[in-house]
């Protein structure tokens, strides 16, 4: 079996990759069902994965990783569907190469950039982060990508750049969910510039040592592990540096329910449900929910960003 040997993670703390790839298959085989062709078999799992040699970055946590099947078939991607499973199939026609990103606003280097060129300047690393959705579930994903701050610095934001705003592709022909009005399209998210520059903020281009699956936000997405998942915008085509706080998708939809900051906080309930606990994806039905941690457990790193702020008011 494949044992990962990356500097800062104890491999014993993490589910062995061959096991998390094959958990369902083992169960299915035991149940006497045919093995699904969607899953790689043990042989391919042991073959070199595309990013198997990518080093582990700082802040990668010792957490039990969610199975790839669960992490890739339970996605909130309203551009395709409000059904978490359907987006897996509906996202398939999306063309993710070539891909360009437009940089706008308060920066010295603006314009259109090819994703390939951005990738050349940003060496890949792996970050194992817990991902907490506002719907009170969480998973642990081994992301492949690079720090957001390092990438943003390459465009030389000016002193006026107080916020970084991100926009998802708008293409209702392929993204059929955009034909309806489940949200005000295109999807927009934003971070305060100090949040964006924080070393935990990450751009993912892959997960589980492979390229990012389309339903998970290919070819590149944001990952902000101390915030609710809706901040971690997918399929980014535009980044704008701005002086004023941008209007963001869910906040526009229901400002009383989805704040701009959206920091994971068990003490601030969503108006319609508690945030004190979370369901761990892939856990058995009898596993109790786990207690949600302030800043999703990343308080040591990020709490100082919010010193003096009333987190109940600025939720």
């Amino acid at each position: 079996m494949l044992i990962k040997e990356k500097s800062t993670i104890l491999s014993s703390e993490i589910t062995d990759k061959a096991i998390f790839l094959n958990r369902r298959k083992i169960i299915k085989a035991a149940a006497g069902l045919s093995i699904t062709s969607l899953l790689p078999n043990t042989a391919t799992a042991e073959k070199a994965k595309k990013y198997a040699q990518v080093p582990s970055g700082p802040y990668s946590a010792n957490l039990q990783v969610t199975s790839i099947e669960d992490a890739t078939n339970y996605t909130n991607y309203y551009e395709f569907s409000t059904n978490k499973k359907d987006s897996t199939i509906l996202a398939r026609p999306l063309k993710t190469s070539p891909w360009t990103i437009t940089i706008e606003g308060e920066a010295e280097k603006t314009g259109e950039f090819n994703l390939e060129d951005i990738l050349k300047n940003n060496p890949l690393e792996e970050r194992i982060y817990r991902f907490r959705c506002v719907e009170a579930w969480s998973m642990v994903v081994p992301w492949i990508g690079f720090p957001l701050g390092a990438m943003l610095q390459q465009f030389k934001p000016t002193a006026k750049a107080k916020f970084a705003e991100f926009t998802t592709l708008y293409n209702p022909e392929v993204m059929i969910g955009q034909r309806g009005k489940s949200l005000d399209w295109p999807y927009v998210e934003a971070l305060r510039i100090d949040e964006a520059m924080h070393p935990l903020a990450f751009i993912a281009t892959g997960m589980y040592d492979e390229d990012l699956p389309k339903q998970n936000g290919a070819p590149l997405r944001l990952v902000v592990p101390w915030k609710y998942g809706f901040k971690s915008i997918k399929a980014i085509v535009k980044i704008r540096f701005s002086e004023t706080m941008p209007a963001t998708a869910w906040n526009k939809m229901a400002a009383g329910e989805y704040g701009f900051y959206a920091n994971v906080n068990p003490h601030v309930p969503h108006p319609r449900w508690s945030q004190s606990r979370e369901r761990i994806l892939g856990a058995s039905i009898f596993t109790p929910k786990r207690k949600t941690e302030l800043f999703n457990g990343y308080g040591e790193q990020v709490a100082s960003l919010y010193t003096g702020m009333d987190l109940k008011k600025h939720f």
Binding site: K28, A31, L33, N73, K85, W137, L281, I285
Partner: peptide, 15 residues
């Protein structure tokens, strides 16, 4: 589906 672990990533929610 419960016995065969076919309820997806969030089985309690599916049930």
């Amino acid at each position: 589906d419960t016995l065969r672990d076919q309820l997806g990533a969030n089985p309690v929610e599916t049930l």
